[in-house]
Amino acid sequence: MLLKINNVEIAAYPKPGDFKVTILDLDDGESTVRTSDGTLHRDRIAVKRQVEMSFAPLPDNKISAILQAMSAPFFDFYYPDPMVGGYVTKRMYVGNRPAAVPIERNGVLWWDGLQITLTEQ
């Protein structure tokens, strides 16, 4: 698997099994309604992607590189997409990015449990 942010390979990869792509349907809030007989009348306006990743412990330089690569309001993310059946580049933004308190080993801070959720613009 290859992951890139703004055409640069990501500094560290998610833990095995902790990379998940969700395909999101966005519906119009006003015209999508369920009638009294229970029938849904749906107005899908877009199909977007959301990518969730969790990382093993990362040293300062790796976690910093990942977070700085996602510091712009929007960025290009290259990843394997299950619906396309191959690699794609999507314009994304990042939500909250929690990381546990670091531990220090041999003078290097290590951060455990970084979680990232990317959502297509």
Rank of each mutant, 00 (worst) to 15 (best):
Phe75Asp: 00
Asn106Ala: 14
Gly38Val: 03
Leu109Glu: 06
Val8Ala: 05
Leu3Ser: 06
Glu104Gln: 09
Gly38Ser: 02
Tyr87Phe: 12
Pro16Tyr: 14
Leu114Gln: 04
Phe55Val: 02
Tyr78Ser: 14
Pro16Leu: 15
Val51His: 03
Ala69Ile: 12
Asp81Tyr: 08
Phe74Gly: 07
Trp110Thr: 08
Thr22Asn: 06
Leu24Glu: 08
Ser64Ile: 14
Phe74Pro: 05
Asp28Pro: 11
Tyr13Gly: 13
Arg42Val: 13
Phe75Glu: 01
Val94Asn: 09
Thr117Leu: 06
Phe55Ala: 02
Arg49Cys: 04
Ile63Trp: 14
Val8Cys: 00
Ile10Thr: 08
Leu26Val: 06
Ala72Ile: 02
Leu3Asp: 13
Lys15Gly: 11
Val101Glu: 10
Asp60His: 12
Asp27Met: 04
Val33His: 00
Tyr79His: 12
Arg34Ser: 03
Gln50Arg: 15
Gln115Ser: 13
Asp112Leu: 10
Thr35Ala: 00
Leu40Asn: 04
Ala99Arg: 06
Gln121Asp: 09
Pro59Tyr: 07
Lys4Ser: 15
Arg44Ala: 10
Leu3Met: 12
Arg42Gly: 07
Lys15Ser: 12
Gly38Leu: 03
Val33Cys: 00
Phe75Pro: 02
Lys20Met: 10
Pro82Tyr: 14
Val51Ser: 01
Asn6Met: 01
Pro102Gly: 15
Pro73Trp: 10
Leu118Gly: 04
Ile5Thr: 05
Ile10Arg: 07
Pro73Val: 10
Arg91Ser: 01
Ile23Tyr: 00
Arg44Asn: 13
Gln68Arg: 10
Phe75Leu: 04
Met83Asp: 11
Gly95Pro: 11
Ala12Gln: 03
Glu30Ser: 02
Glu52Arg: 07
Pro14Thr: 06
Arg105Tyr: 09
Leu3Arg: 04
Glu9His: 03
Gly95Lys: 07
Ser71Met: 11
Leu109Ala: 05
Val88Phe: 09
Gly86Lys: 15
Glu52Lys: 09
Leu26Gly: 02
Asp81Met: 05
Ser54Phe: 01
Gly38Pro: 02
Ala65His: 08
Gly107Thr: 08
Val33Leu: 01
Phe74Val: 15
Glu30Gly: 00
Lys62Gly: 13
Phe75His: 00
Tyr79Val: 02
Val94Thr: 09
